[in-house]
Amino acid sequence: MRNIFLFIRRYFNFLFFLALQVLALSFLFRYNKFHEAAFMGVASEITGRVNNRYNTIEYYFKLKKTNEALVKENVELRTLLRSNYLQSDTMHLVAVDSIRVDSLIKYQKYTYLEAKVVGGFITTQTNFFTIHRGTDQGVNVDMAVISPQGVVGRVVNSSANFSTVMTMLSRQFKVDAKLKNSGERGIISWDGVSPDFIQMRNIPKNIKIAKGDSVLTSELSSIFPANIMVGTVDSVFNDPSTNFFTLRLRSSTNFSTVQFVYVVQNKQIEEQRKLESATQKINE
């Protein structure tokens, strides 16, 4: 027994070093999806406040670009669409020629919250934004985040007043998308090379693709509304060993200047998830 204590005392520094390493690595790998990372809730509340201070300066220098993006979006909204409303029963006809929100509110599938981006990076391999909205304002994990220009990312963590958003420029981020012209679907991901470009996989080789084609979110993505801009085709890679093209897209959102985003809540997602998990159980 005495020898054990002597051993610990003699190699205390080394053992302490190992203990700290194990602690740090367990933070890193045990919560490898970054979702419930250690003390992240408390920490993001504090870092969020510091970020907010910094952003009051940064925001001033980006006002012009922010304005341009918001004006552009307003123009698009003028030509407004009914696609935010989904009727669950198509046989039941509602005879209105414009959207009357009171009578259709029970069919509303997506609701939007505006949020200010207060912190973010595009220089690392997993890029996150901090937004100034949290659970107190109704933001929860797994909500979609879009900007006036297009897809931004997904909420992965939220504290009382701040939330962390995993952006499209993150290697863990995946979203189902489609080509606007042909409707062909593929998976969007990022290869970590350049923050200007993202990748789209699984496009069959018989599809005709032109440079500049638009890519939108598909109907299969349950958290994103359909037909949100993802990017435009920049170049096509032909891998001879597979039957699929890999497209390089220029992302429509400018991640370094975006200042305002919308957090999108899918009100019908609970029902959809329940059904899908029940179906999976039957098949197992």
Partner: peptide, 11 residues
């Protein structure tokens, strides 16, 4: 905590 990579730089 600022860069949202818990444990990486600490190690």
């Amino acid at each position: 905590y600022f860069l949202v990579t818990p444990g990486l730089h600490a190690a």
